[in-house]
Design a protein around this nucleic acid. Structure first.
Length: 291
DNA sequence: ACAGGATCCTGGGGGC
DNA sequence: TGCCCCCAGGATCCTG
């Protein structure tokens, strides 16, 4: 579910609520997550204080005063929230940290694609990211690096954007929205893009992610921020989930195709496989025969 | 090495 | 109301 803007919103919401708090008690749910919770971690956490919370790609990192790092991934339906302990407990709760101000940090995940684990120190965390070859943050995306990364791939733009090794934090929604804003068909092969097109794509990624953060991310169904609030960027979607609805630029019906195994949305006239948009192409030509 | 597909889960919505 | 099928913000295996 959550991509960079949603994870960033969670972190910003949680920061004032958990930083400085001490863990008084830990409760685990009846069902295991993908990464099973190790009960030995409880002893390493109890009585310790949260020093900081930050994000890397779609990962949430909570720093403890012991130097250990709590690493959380929300998967598709994960929710990490902090609220008064008196708030009713929903189902599918997997972790509850009771804090020293009568509040609770809660991890809920219906589909259990998410994970939570404790790492010994910052070095262990960085090793994990290095081993996964986690790519740069979008706001640190060097144009030269990105041109090379896109151009050397004989796969679709959609697959490239979803690859966390190329750029960290982009998911299905913002891949589609970035392609839309760049006027590029998500099925275009990276190797066939011109440098100018790759630069356009990079600009579009930065723009859409910054814009989405301002709106507290997008809520399709499950996503809520660290305070329990929903996102608002779904109102700004140009293509995602708008199959059959008119393109906000040219009025053509938005198309949906499965690309790289994921549902992909685009305007068939503004985002053409041959690289030309509606303005520069005859209206009679509906689809490029190429690719 | 690379690209594409299957797989892990649960629940909601649409069609019948 | 019930059943069946499809769909969903992600990452990781396995295969060719």
């Amino acid at each position: 579910m959550p991509e960079l803007p949603e994870v960033e919103t969670v972190v910003r919401d949680l920061r004032p609520r958990v930083v400085g708090r001490v863990i008084r008690n830990i409760t685990t749910g009846p069902r295991q997550l993908r990464t099973p919770w190790n009960d030995a971690w409880n002893d390493q956490l109890l009585g310790h204080r949260f020093l900081a919370i930050r994000r890397r790609g779609k990962w949430i990192i909570v720093e403890l005063d012991s130097g250990s790092r709590l690493l959380v991934h929300l998967g598709m339906t994960g929710q990490l929230t902090a609220m008064p302990a008196t708030e009713p407990q929903p189902d599918h709760l997997h972790l509850i940290f009771a804090l020293d101000d009568e509040s609770e940090l809660r991890f809920r995940d219906v589909r259990r694609f998410g994970s939570a684990r404790l790492l010994a120190d910052e070095e262990t965390l960085q090793e994990l990211f290095t081993k996964a070859k986690l790519g740069p943050e979008p706001f640190q995306l060097d144009p030269g690096y990105f041109r090379t990364a896109v151009h050397k791939a004989n796969r679709s733009l959609k697959a490239i954007l979803l690859d966390q090794r190329v750029v960290a934090g982009v998911g299905n929604i913002y891949a589609d929205e970035a392609c839309s804003r760049a006027g590029l068909h998500p099925g275009r092969r990276g190797v066939r893009l011109t440098p100018a097109e790759v630069d356009r794509l990079r600009d579009a990624i930065l723009e859409v992610i910054a814009h989405a953060i301002e709106h507290r991310g997008s809520t399709i169904r499950d996503y809520i921020g660290g305070s329990g609030l929903r996102g608002g960027f779904q109102e700004e979607f140009r293509v995602y989930g708008r199959t059959g609805e008119p393109c906000k630029t040219c009025g053509s019906a938005i198309s949906r195709l499965v690309i790289a195994g994921r549902s992909s949305h685009f305007c068939p006239d503004c985002q053409r496989m041959n690289g030309r948009g509606a303005k520069s192409t005859s209206r009679i030509v509906k689809r490029s025969p190429r690719e």
